[in-house]
């Protein structure tokens, strides 16, 4: 296990390095500079500004500097936003993003587990059909469509929640709902399949033949065995929540990282795009790593080795 984790961490750095390199050179390939709009700048001024950002050096030197900076935790400096370092931008904006992301993950996962479990237990009944329908809606309707609909009805028409504001918990409800639909649908579907499988397994029959009530069979045996594989889809879900957050934060005017990312794209703020790309990748790879380790820890077949034999 320790060796495996070490190997994974090594891979993590390798992947990050590759991402940083690709990002850097892609940004260099871009036509135009962020200063192309600023016509009022004289050639002299432009030179000074370029020197200030280190853009007068050769691409290779810039690359080495960039990677060197990354190793020290420096994600570069934004061209816009008062030349703030990207890390500082992230620092200011991480709290709302994390709050909404975490809320959506928790709501989606727990809701999905319950929905999937109920569907599996009541398999082939109207309950199952309804649960399956909800999960299909959740994973089919893009989060930004859902966000706009929620905003229109719950905020604009019925005025239950603020339209676009970020201050208290109340204002995080709609974005959380919009973002949690996809994880909810995904988890519910996955959970249903797993649980149906587990419920038809021999050890569940044995558990029932021991005299366990149906409730106990589910809570003591079926749930745990179905939940273990669900851990593996937390990674992909984090990706989808992150994707969704970019538009959802925009729609609800939430000062988060996703909103920043989209703003940077539309304003050609390359250092910020680069910095946020690497930050996002780092975040996701860490999530994947944690999930993998977690999976190994909770499944005795992997934790104690001799696993895939069955």
């Amino acid at each position: 296990m320790a060796k495996y984790i070490l190997k994974r961490i090594l891979y993590l750095f390798l992947t990050l390095f590759i991402i940083a390199t690709i990002t850097f050179f892609m940004m260099k390939m871009l036509p135009g500079t962020p200063f192309s709009n600023e016509n009022r700048m004289s050639a002299e001024q432009l030179k000074i500004v370029k020197a200030q950002y280190g853009l007068d050096q050769s691409v290779f030197v810039q690359y080495v500097r960039y990677i060197g900076g990354l190793l020290q935790g420096n994600l570069g400096t934004s061209f816009q936003f008062n030349n703030e370092p990207v890390t500082a931008l992230i620092g200011q904006r991480i709290v709302p993003s994390m709050q909404i992301g975490a809320q959506a993950m928790v709501v989606g996962t727990i809701g999905g587990i319950l929905l999937g479990a109920i569907a599996a237990i009541r398999k082939n009944t109207w309950v199952d059909t309804l649960a399956t329908f909800i999960s299909i809606l959740g994973l089919s309707i893009p989060s930004f469509v859902l966000a706009v609909l929620l905003q229109f009805y719950l905020a604009y028409k019925w005025k239950i929640y603020p339209v676009a504001l970020w201050d208290n918990f109340q204002s995080s409800v709609l974005p959380t709902l919009a973002l949690s639909a996809l994880p909810l649908g995904t988890v519910a579907r996955f959970m249903r399949t797993e649980m149906v499988d587990v419920l038809s397994s021999d050890y569940i029959e044995l558990a029932k033949s021991k005299g366990n009530s149906n409730w106990k069979v589910v809570t003591k045996h079926a749930l745990r065995n179905s939940l273990i594989p669900v851990v593996t889809i937390i990674g992909p879900m984090a990706v989808s929540v992150m994707t969704g957050s970019m538009v959802v934060e925009n729609i609800f005017s939430i000062p988060g990282i996703g909103e920043q990312f989209v703003k940077s794209i539309t304003t050609n703020d390359y250092p910020t795009i680069m910095g946020l790309t690497i930050f996002y990748s780092f975040l996701l790879i860490i999530v994947y790593l944690i999930v993998d380790i977690l999976y190994g820890l909770i499944d005795p077949r992997i934790r104690l080795g001799n696993g895939g034999k069955e």
Partner: peptide
């Protein structure tokens, strides 16, 4: 596959 595809798509 370890590079988030959204990132690649947006960069592209």
């Amino acid at each position: 596959s370890s590079i988030p595809n959204l990132i690649v798509v947006i960069l592209m």
